[in-house]
Design a protein around this nucleic acid. Structure first.
Lengths: 260, 260
DNA sequence: AGCTTTCAAACATGAGTAATGTTCGTTACG
DNA sequence: CGTAACGAACATTACTCATGTTTGAAAGCT
């Protein structure tokens, strides 16, 4: 039998399933099989995978959403969304980093892309997530890796806790690259998680220069945990979907905004 | 054309090449091609790979050993040697760990096997190598991971330096699992690297109980950097190839020796 | 209990990927 | 200047991964 490629990759289907479940609250295996064109068995395997990642909850006959409130979407999903925009932002950030600098790199998907690029540069990097540590660890590239202590949080592998704060306090960096969960001129820099916010705050304190990475959806959005005022951010790199009034307000506060 | 499987995997061939080069000091591409049954081009690619791992040195027409003195063999090789013995030792060590314990896990191949087993246990583990961190990071197993700070050393990913020492000094553990480079009753516990030795020393200081993992080749052997006297080791787990006189001497010093 | 739906293990298939071999032009060494 | 070694490009093979199908077991409903 000839099985033609239906133009939907593994990741595409996972994203579609997750979106469907998130939007309607729940979905049956049959519905999802019909929607994606895949067999029910494949849908079941997908649901098991997504459930293991904490994207949704498996129930008999289908799946249910776990995101009853407007919480942070799971890492496994964000990692595949707006990849091109994240890569552009990451590239613009790395262009701002000079050879030989010492850099502290925040957790998050955009910062992970930055890690990929920094690996090829003669810089010293201390990443605040396990994912970025893995990325920077293997090849004998020119970059020097410094590992902070800490306890990894969730699938993202964001390092938090006293050990992380102590590692940051013991060092000074030329630049901190901070990933945002929310950023407004009024409410400042915010994160979803209290521990994360404390780490971001410490990273900013340990660095002479602060570069924030935030795609357009983060601008004008405020999360729960407060990190600090927007004026802490020296340079913001964002994309063209960012609301212009927010950009204007941030620039009025002294932040340099680069749109890529 | 039918190409029959010659029963030699990629890793097998690499191991054979490395052994040949190590034993005779050098080898030509032709010799190695004839020995392994692979083409010269494949041998060249292998030699490039092994040279990149620091296993040997590439010279025109073949390769030369780098191990002119009795230095530590490269990690990439040790990882594939005596795997069964290491696994038995690791299993015996894990059997000594109770549920709920906090454990600091040294770098090295045997400890990496222990990490694989500890992942499935409800314990808190702080591994001192990137490899073990990777291993313990991905699955949402029952084990809790704590990451120490530090700078990774070589391919092994052993964490060393002030951040590592500070992380160890800030915490206390029930058990330290220490991998040996050398252990004798007379010279005590020794390591190949000075920084490594300092980390081992700190790990031992931070733990109530010290378990040493050492296959038979390490017993009676002394490396350059001194970690501490053999009496620091409460329990030694080794294999039947260990020299009996050394075991007797260690037991006389108060160390409990388990042979598996 | 009996029926239906859902599930998961086992096997088969097909596509994409990594490994290997061959050829040929280039480079290094004597 | 000649010979051996090298490495890039391509062809082929082996392997791995995702998917589909089948089948028997388990879970839920009446």
């Amino acid at each position: 039998m000839v099985v033609f490629n239906r133009g939907m990759s593994n990741a595409d289907r996972h994203g579609l399933i997750a979106k469907t479940v998130r939007d309607s609250g729940r979905a049956t295996v049959q519905e999802l099989a019909e929607l994606t064109g895949a067999s029910e068995m494949t849908i079941r395997r997908d649901l098991d995978t997504l459930a293991a990642q904490g994207v949704l909850e498996r129930v008999r006959g289908g799946a249910r959403t776990l995101l009853l409130r407007g919480e942070e979407p799971p890492f496994a999903l964000r990692a595949h969304e707006a990849v091109a925009a994240k890569q552009r932002i990451a590239a613009a950030i790395c262009a701002l980093i000079a050879d030989g600098e010492t850099v502290v790199l925040d957790s998050g998907t955009t910062c992970l892309e930055a890690a990929r690029l920094l690996r090829e540069r003669p810089v010293t990097v201390m990443p605040l997530s396990l994912q970025a540590i893995h990325l920077l660890a293997e090849p004998p590239g020119p970059a020097t890796l410094v590992v902070p202590g800490g306890r990894p949080r969730a699938a993202e592998g964001a390092l938090t806790g006293p050990l992380t704060l102590a590692s940051l306090a013991a060092l000074r960096f030329d630049t901190a690259i901070i990933g945002c969960c929310g950023l407004t001129a009024a409410d400042g820099l915010t994160a979803y998680d209290l521990d994360d916010a404390a780490v971001k705050k410490a990273a900013i304190t340990s660095a002479r220069r602060v570069i924030a990475a935030a795609d357009g959806s983060k601008l004008g959005h405020t999360a729960h945990a407060h990190v600090g005022p927007a004026t802490l951010v020296h340079t913001l790199v964002t994309d063209p979907t960012a609301p212009t009034d927010e950009i204007t307000a941030l620039e009025a506060g002294g932040t340099v905004v680069r749109t890529v």
